[in-house]
Design a protein around this nucleic acid. Sequence first.
DNA 1: TGTTTTCTCAATCTTTTGATTTAGATTAGT
DNA 2: ACTAATCTAAATCAAAAGATTGAGAAAACA
Lengths: 234, 234
Amino acid sequence: MRDFNKKLRVLLIDDNANHLRGIKELITLETNYNVVGATRSANLGINLIKKYHPDVVLMDINMPEKDGLQAIQAINKMELSTKVVVLSGYDDADLVYRAMKLGARGYVLKTMASVKLIDAIEDVSEGKIYLPAALSTRFFEYFQSAARKEANKVEGENLLNTLTVRESEVLELLTQGVNYKTIAGTLIISETTVKTHVNNIFQKLQVNDRTNAVLYALSHGFKPSNKSAAMTAA
Amino acid sequence: MRDFNKKLRVLLIDDNANHLRGIKELITLETNYNVVGATRSANLGINLIKKYHPDVVLMDINMPEKDGLQAIQAINKMELSTKVVVLSGYDDADLVYRAMKLGARGYVLKTMASVKLIDAIEDVSEGKIYLPAALSTRFFEYFQSAARKEANKVEGENLLNTLTVRESEVLELLTQGVNYKTIAGTLIISETTVKTHVNNIFQKLQVNDRTNAVLYALSHGFKPSNKSAAMTAA
DNA sequence: TGTTTTCTCAATCTTTTGATTTAGATTAGT
DNA sequence: ACTAATCTAAATCAAAAGATTGAGAAAACA
């Protein structure tokens, strides 16, 4: 995992100059860390990362601006092995959630003991995720409530269940945006038969056109249940 | 948070009878725990939960069957304060992810020291999330890779960016499944103008009909950017 | 075996959509 | 001020989609 013979290369990004200096001191006190850069600008930081490929980036995030979040995304898009640890004054659930979603490997609050910061750097450099219990709970509450919302959307008496096998096959092709002719060709039935099916689908889903049928299907978790012959359709 | 004067009420679900007995012994050794039930069936377990409203449920999950996952969902749907701790032999990333997504508050591997199980019960009963570092890392890797896939889908040169403001407004209405007449009425322009816009949209999105335009919009993260006048459209 | 559901197809008709061309008015940008 | 982009609109055609009725064959079901 981690080679203890080599110093960990750390880069700091914090728009507060005083804070930046403080962290730098703290880090350099650790004998096996090497601060390869420290900057107040996210954009500048990204350039430094491109140049130095640090092991860990300590990234300050201020609530109002979303530069920090974008920076995290940008860093991860570089496909380096650089791990991002967020350093923030906010334990806002949404912020934690979004930071982790965009690829942060750790999240430390400024109010936490400085030793936590060292812990975080150690953990993420070894490939672990560092998220203190309080933040972890926040994250999961957010995550689970989001998942729940989605699940509910799919719930309710789902009119999709009233469809026959054949109708489902037709609907699947509709959700792929193909016309009558193509559906007929794919299922090897006549175009008028397809029209019949489509009309029945409309009745059952209580819509009047294919666009609304497709919208209904997509928003109600329609899944091509069958060993669909439609697989071959481009 | 937790009232230490009262014993924690724990319910066990594990389809292995021996294992079930073992855990029960382990739990009852703790003086402040009270095992209110132990069963080998997920369905039976759910009934017991309805009856006894335990504080914590220890739920065994075996990989192949997805009864366990469904049970987690069912329990959380009851809207009780009952917390679910998963007990599993598998540290599969997908399984951990899905269990947490469905509302589990903790996840413990059977290979872990039994004291971890007690830790988990304590933590979740206090409202925390319990997820050992190794599993947490697994979870986040899965979570972040999923998030990444979604982000990529929205990436790529997004043809949606080539749309004008008005065209976006029209497209938004298209994604709501309304016809020309309604669009014209909503935007207070003539139907022929709408047709012009729609045709321009088709050109820009490289499609031939509204269904595909809508599909493109939905799959490329189309967001009604404006202070849309379309808000009033049913 | 009788009944119901599902799948198939046709014919007809209306409505909606989509394609194309042309063009005036307004706005934004250089 | 000149130019390019945008928004508006009409007219016309062709094509696709949708509604409706009726009906035979096969499969599922009771």
